[in-house]
Design a protein around this nucleic acid. Structure first.
Lengths: 187, 187
DNA sequence: TTAATATACGGAGGTAGCCTCCGATTGGCT
DNA sequence: AGCCAATCGGAGGCTACCTCCGTATATTAA
């Protein structure tokens, strides 16, 4: 079924060099980093880059999949936390940190969450499911409004992360996320 | 002091044609719309566009200034509203609707709010001040947390607007803004 | 009306990035 | 060693950005 021919040695070498340089470039210039530049630095022709990664999204998805899986694991750990609402907040904060690593990443993932045809959508599906269990538990414990959905919370998190990226100092996302969880009103 | 020589007739004509087409193009393609396309549709050379508006931001700023002023007026009206917190929320919602008119606009204005050297920063300063009076009043009435700043609220609003733009249907921004104001917890 | 001149126009041209296509190259197998 | 499928590389066509400067024209003065 899942027959995967091993890559030719030169192909595998180039594939890995490309991923290394892509990581560097995205971290430095954001998700809009020049693909030609990545190929150049990897010592590879632009055609080779496009053969391995037909789209920019494909390249990003390869870099990000491991992180999504890690977030899914994290959610599974937190499901036993004694404080369901705090656990949810902690998990969202971790996710927010992850989406803040490349400039522009948060836009990309927010879109991916609503586009089933996206490669990223599939690749973060497990994480989503694990997260929704955290949400359900918080509701069952009566700690979270019943009418809020997992998708809304994920989007709120993305919004906080986005906003944090448009604030001068660091920690903006955490502050905003806390505000949303604590509420704006005087209690 | 403020001597402004009247524009030559052809210059004024082109200036106005450019603004019309820019409005069309930004509404249709978002703030990244092609400037060459705008010039083409205005029946004007690209050099003419750049002479009147040295940067994309200058063009946008000219289109947006009137809106900022309108939002400032709106804030001054709402300052007498009997419900200070609701008035604040209403005002923010109106602002959110305005930033949703062009794709990409919300990123631009959010950045402008933190960059004093930006033309947009200056052009929305009056609006900002008027808004901060709404915030102060809500705090004085004991309806809003003391430790939230106007800038944070503006950023939260921008975040809600941003997120609304990444949701399939309409009305996303209002729903998210309401969530933030009502709080996530069960009360 | 015409001439003079400041003002404004237009688009060629250099840069850069996207993506495709196909002739040249090379790894791996016999 | 020799073959061939797998892989490579980059030229080339496209679009967009922005600058520069020779050309055209609105305005003013004679």
């Amino acid at each position: 079924m899942t027959e995967v021919k091993p890559m030719r040695a030169d192909a595998r070498r180039n594939y890995e060099r490309l991923l290394e340089e892509a990581q560097r470039a995205f971290a430095e210039h954001g998700v809009e980093a020049s693909l030609e530049d990545i190929a150049r630095r990897a010592g590879v022709g632009i055609g080779t880059l496009y053969r391995h990664f037909p789209t920019r999204e494909a390249l990003l998805e390869t870099l990000l999949r491991a992180r999504f899986d890690a977030q899914a694991d994290r959610a599974r750990e937190l499901i036993t936390d004694p404080e369901p609402l705090a656990a949810l907040q902690t998990w969202l904060a971790g996710l927010g940190d992850a989406t803040g690593t490349f400039r522009g990443l948060v836009e990309l993932t927010a879109d991916a969450l609503n586009d089933e045809s996206s490669r990223l959508y599939a690749s973060c599906h497990a994480m989503r499911v694990a997260g929704s269990h955290l949400v359900e538990r918080a509701k069952e414990e009566g700690a979270l409004r019943e009418d809020v959905t997992t998708d809304e919370l994920l989007l709120l998190l993305h919004a906080a992360s986005w906003a944090g990226g448009h604030l001068p100092g660091p920690g903006g996302m955490h502050r905003l996320l806390a505000l949303v969880f604590e509420g704006l009103r005087v209690s």
